[in-house]
């Protein structure tokens, strides 16, 4: 909002309150859940995930929530959450929290030696929806930093609809596998399959592969 418009809006507030009948305003804060694939060779892409996180930290404000979790063999677990926080209402404290969050992420990246055997993306998304719904944020985002190739352990059941009401799901850096190069339809089918699941669950689906265009990632005030 431009300063002049903000000033006018502030001055016109009493009138707007009267007209709106002092109704409860919708929450304006955001909640972001970043899922990072740590399976197999995808760990090599971790520096890109750090760049995404830095972008998020730079653009999220007081009152917003953020969580970073890894995708491993069984991702539907709180243990997979690397760090999570809700930024304080005071900007100075929020800045300190951002520094601590970045430190936690850096530590995780330094300590990660080898990837997980399986890739449970659905479990991670389920965990994310739970976290996001708990925050009660106005805008909810699940960012999946993965190649979207799900490789579940034999006994895990994940083929059921997921409820993703009012959640924006963004797939980031969906790399092509070796098999995708042989038959690109595999890659396209993978994307279509995820889009179908997300839209069917009531969510909104987007894919951003070019990380130079991160400004479209979340709506910045």
């Amino acid at each position: 909002m431009k300063p002049l418009a903000k000033l006018i809006a502030t001055a016109a507030l009493p009138l707007s309150l009267l007209l709106s009948g002092c109704s409860e305003p919708a929450p304006k804060n955001k909640a972001v859940y970043l899922l990072i694939d740590t399976s197999g060779t995808y760990t090599q892409e971790l520096n890109k995930a750090q760049a995404i996180l830095n972008y998020l930290l730079a653009n999220l404000d007081s009152g917003d929530s953020i969580a970073v979790a890894r995708i491993d063999s069984g991702s539907f677990s709180e243990k997979d959450i690397i760090a999570k926080t809700t930024f304080d209402v005071r900007p100075s404290t929020a800045n300190d929290q951002k520094r601590q969050f970045k430190l936690a992420m850096d530590t995780f990246a330094d300590n990660l030696k080898h990837g997980s055997a399986n890739t449970d993306i659905t479990g991670g998304v389920l965990q994310a929806t739970q976290y996001l719904n708990e925050t009660g944020a106005g805008e909810k985002y699940v960012l999946i930093f993965s190649d979207l190739e799900e490789d579940l352990p034999d006994d895990h059941v994940r083929d059921f609809p997921i409820s993703l009401d009012n959640i924006h799901v963004v797939a980031l850096n969906v790399t092509k596998l070796r098999s995708d190069n042989i038959d690109p339809r595999d890659y396209l089918n993978r994307l279509d399959n995820w889009q179908h699941r997300v839209v069917e669950g009531g969510g909104d689906w987007r894919v951003i592969n070019d990380l130079e265009r991160m400004e479209r990632l979340i709506a910045v005030n």
Partner: peptide, 16 residues
């Protein structure tokens, strides 16, 4: 901007 440090930067009255 510094006012948000005193009264908080997340609460809204109406749209402001």
């Amino acid at each position: 901007m510094p006012m948000s440090e005193m009264v908080g930067g997340t609460s809204y009255i109406g749209a402001v």
